[in-house]
Write a protein that binds this DNA or RNA. Structure first.
Lengths: 232, 232, 232, 232
DNA sequence: TATGAATGAGTGTTCATTCAT
DNA sequence: TATGAATGAACACTCATTCAT
């Protein structure tokens, strides 16, 4: 699969037209999502009451049920909507970039920056949604999986481009890149430290990427050494 | 603070033996914790019902209240108990090791292995407890913090021992080490992949440690290069 | 009151044409009644939702309210409409018949046959409407009462015609005739047994009527016997 | 199957030990059933609120749920309990009777009398439960079926005893006997007429039984006539 | 120590009905 | 005439927790 095709695919999954046409509906829907995010972020999903969400959205409980069939449904709709925005942002920003390394750099930095700009969503996503993607099969869980999918794709691309060693496990590399970043983000969400998440995110991304380059260099050295040894 | 003092401190906090003396009580208490772990792991903390835990433990709900004052109390007791076991195991195993690098290696590998041996607890800990350490101030949250504390301590020690660059941020290094490992563990919890967690854990630990060494080497080169450059 | 007057009266009450003139309205009204019958028959009145009825009728819920003021209103309109049809059918068919016995025979047989031809309505009528005619005073409840009224009238007529004993209670006789038939109909509705309701209905009607005749004969014998006894 | 075996079977199905042992429980259970009967009888099952039942029983809603898992469950428990009582009463009373005719007479008369003595239950049973035995498979629906089963059994026995014609359909005969009686009972429930249900019930039972005897006599005559005709 | 019984406070969800367009 | 949108009033059911024995 090509890069453009992958992005298209991801975008398509993320964009979920609500089917509603009328203007009023659209506005209400947005109000609900905003309200839900605020309430979920404040109380946590399980402790949130839909009555609160409705009140926060300025509508009645029953109206909320006109838009979402259950509490669970809302709990999924919120991250889904934001995920879509994130992927849109990324798709736009990545257009100018070539080379796997640069793309990964952009991707991971954007993740951190997006979390900083949407802290309530990030809290919800990293502390509640992600851990419970257990409930597989949902559209959402696929969208979450896309997170890794993109990274894995780019790592493989980087290997092809000779950026990183061919011998390494892409999944492990992905774990290092995204795991490190996640840890920084989660720490920020829990303790608001380090102060500047965007900077800290970029820093850890640059560092891990640099380490991967060093690893490649080291690897190349060893590889080259062997033939020489044989030749002698 | 010295290493031994740190470990002592951590152990002390973790060991929170409940004052129960009688044998029967102890057995019942253990049954409760086992049952709670199973139920929490299966249904998630918020969806678990204490009636279920009591049933699983083979006692009546009211009896359960003789041992724990509330649901929250149980939710804390379970991870606490395991955390204590983990720290005990680590304290024992680390006794023979010297050098920050070796200790970190042991520490992180043991984390992965412990998760593999106690998957239900790991599920609970990584997907529920950790993300919600929000509720700060508790003894538990301190025990969880000890996780990072030990690592940070060892990284600092490593820096002192000249193992890693002095210029780096220990917290970022910790984020890389533990974030990578966590990601591997969580992936395993959610998808049971990679198959062998102990091996995969050790692998990612070795790799990140190796990368840190390369980083140090690179750093040293640059540092040494400069004076040379100046000298020229 | 004369037979023709009774029938006229019954017909008039049953025919409660709604004032709608326009063609489209009429068609929609019919669609609503059909839909309501289907939904009521399927889910039972109390568990039916008007949203379902509207959907089944292919219109919006709000449109349904243009035709009926409430759920109760629909619940009455459906049986009323069918009851009217039934009485029309009966009025037409009975025109050629003379004699109370023949008329009763026709009446009861038609009841069974009508139920067979309109099983959904029958289900609604026998299992929901009839039992709850509790809510008296309505036009509908009067129409339901007409059911018995007609029968009672004919039984009295039969007594006058010397068909049955004068000493018997017409209400009890009616209970026997219609109770037996109802039981057959209800059994059919619940278990679809006997297979052929029209036949089974006719059979039980004929049998009960025959039994009434035997009773009359027996009665006459006893009555005649007595004077004879006295004479001796 | 023998008569005694049939009765045993019916009784066993009807008697449903609640499993509760303690005295307080038993009393509460009874209070619930009494309250439910009152409320159901007053408002109809679907319009009854369990909060009302609980209040009527002098307990809290949640306590009610300790005894019954759902509203439906209560709706079944009430008629079931009374049905059990009825079968007990019948079993005791029938002990002294021999002969199918006498037994049927007792059976049907007892049905009417039982309805008179328990009018709230009768209202519930005849106007709500019976019509909706649709929901088959329940223990209750079997207990309801036992109603007919007993009658059919006795009719067959009567045929064997030469009480009634062998040529007739027992199910139709049952429909006549029980349908007539039901109609009388339902009329009484709806309009409180005739005043004395016990008497009216006994009357219609006696009359239908008498009619069946006349039918048999008539049948015998015809049967005997034929051979004679042949002999000539 | 153990438990059967009881409960208060809560909450997600339904549905008939109205209203502005 | 038709309907999309909105809602108030209910209501069944849950569950952590207490208390008398």
């Amino acid at each position: 699969m090509k890069w453009t095709a992958l992005i298209e695919d991801v975008l398509q999954r993320a964009r979920q037209e609500s089917g509603r046409k009328q203007d009023r509906s659209r506005r209400t829907e947005q109000q609900i999502l905003d309200a839900a995010l605020r309430v979920f972020g404040r109380d946590g999903i399980s402790r949130s009451r839909i009555a609160d969400i409705a009140a926060e959205a300025g509508i009645s409980t029953s109206t909320l049920y006109e838009y979402h069939t259950s509490k669970e449904d809302i709990a999924y709709a919120v991250p889904t909507a934001y995920l879509a925005t994130f992927y849109e942002e990324f798709a736009e920003a990545v257009a100018g970039k070539t080379g796997a390394r640069e793309r990964i750099r952009l991707y991971l930095s954007l993740i951190a920056d997006f979390a900083r700009r949407n802290p309530e969503w990030a809290r919800l996503f990293y502390l509640e949604i992600w851990p419970s993607v257990l409930v597989g099969g949902t559209e959402l869980s696929k969208s979450v999986d896309d997170f890794s999918r993109i990274l894995i794709f780019l790592i493989r691309q980087g290997i092809e481009e000779g950026e990183w060693s061919a011998g390494i496990d892409p999944y492990e590399t992905a774990a290092i890149l995204i795991g490190s970043l996640n840890h920084v983000i989660i720490t920020w969400l829990l303790y608001r430290r380090p102060k500047n998440l965007t900077k800290a995110g970029a820093s850890v991304v640059d560092r891990t990427l640099a380490m991967l380059s060093l690893e490649k260099a080291e690897h190349d050295k060893t590889e080259t050494a062997k033939p020489v040894a044989k030749a002698s």
